[in-house]
Amino acid sequence: MNITVNMISGAVFYLSLVILVIGLAIKVITLYKADPSLSSGVYPKPPQCKRIYLIARDIFTCPGLWEIHPFLWLVVMFFHLALFGIIIGHLHLIGRFPGILEILMTSSAADALVLTLGLLGTGAILVFLFRRMTDPLRYTSHFRDYLLLLLILGAFVSGEVLRINSVSLAFIPESVRNILALQPVSPEILKGSAASWLLPLHLLLVSFLLIYLPFSNLVHMFSSLLTNRLKRV
């Protein structure tokens, strides 16, 4: 058990980070080597000064989605809001934020907010899964689409349960800092708490996600900027 936990919170996690970096580098090189694009966006073409604003609006507010599917727009927004909250929350585990953010992150209202975001995010993934399994999307979905959603769902839920059970325990932030300082979690510290199996499980799922990220359509977190830019060219 100790060896497994050490492996997950150490070697596996670090290996996933290495694969993530190499995978993204290969992706960038492949794109760089491909023939330059012959773009022809849609009309009306915005003036140069308005183009950046429109690209940002397309990426962050998805106006087309709102127009044809308001419910799904809400689900998508909740999901991404939850992701944003998760990133902020994880940064909080590594270091302290100054000023108002510190107060926000430590107040009980913040706890409720994080819990709400977690639930909304989980709900959103379940909606995505349901859509994938029903017509017409089930015909365009492959195993990797389900795998991706299940990995995200697993990471979401395990992280949320971990937070609810162990957030008050001082060793979680410390463990995260240790992992990032290349000194993985010591299983002895985890003994006797839910975190003894939840943290390795969470880390394992996150590691798989990191490995999978450059090969999955999660790269849209970077490439949607490029594709939305092409639309406005």
């Binding site: 992706k27 492949t30 794109l31 491909a34 023939d35 330059p36 694009s37 012959l38 773009s39 689409d145 359509n217 790269v219 849209h220 490439s223 949607s224 490029l226 594709t227 092409l230």
Partner: peptide, 12 residues
């Protein structure tokens, strides 16, 4: 092309 690859990578 580069555009083709962007599209294939991005489409979810």
């Amino acid at each position: 092309s580069r555009q083709f690859r962007y599209y294939l990578d991005t489409c979810s």
